[in-house]
């Protein structure tokens, strides 16, 4: 197991839903990562499709950047439908 890369596992639980991260595992290559993921994460019909991605290939935002990244959205309440007044007489809006 020495130097086997770490893979992040994503499972699509049903047709029509997005793949969702479920965990990680070590495997020597992508094919074996899929096989191991089948055994580790889908023992009870949890999935219809598996993606594996090398952990080192994932670029992530850092917790320290949270404010500059996400703060700007906070003040933009007009992006939500509840911001607008709709008179009761007006239907289907």
């Amino acid at each position: 197991m020495n130097d086997w890369p770490l893979w992040e596992i994503f499972i699509r639980s049903q047709h029509g839903l997005a793949h969702k991260h479920v965990g990680s595992l070590h495997a020597p290559d992508a094919e074996m990562a899929v096989k191991n993921a089948r055994d580790v994460y889908t023992r009870r019909n949890e999935g219809v499709s598996i993606w594996v991605v090398k952990s080192c290939d994932i670029a992530a935002s850092s917790p320290g950047e949270k404010e500059p990244l996400f703060e700007p959205a906070n003040s933009k309440v007009y992006r939500h439908p509840g911001f607008y007044e709709v008179p009761e007489e007006v239907k289907n809006m």
């Binding site: 197991m1 770490l6 965990g23 595992l25 070590h26 055994d39 580790v40 023992r43």
Partner: peptide, 21 residues
């Protein structure tokens, strides 16, 4: 087999704290 799986979920969680498997 579940227990092997449980061990693996947890070993992965340990790894996120910066120790190797």
């Amino acid at each position: 087999q579940d227990e092997a799986g449980h061990g693996l979920y947890l070993y992965s969680a340990v790894e996120t704290l910066g120790v190797t498997r």
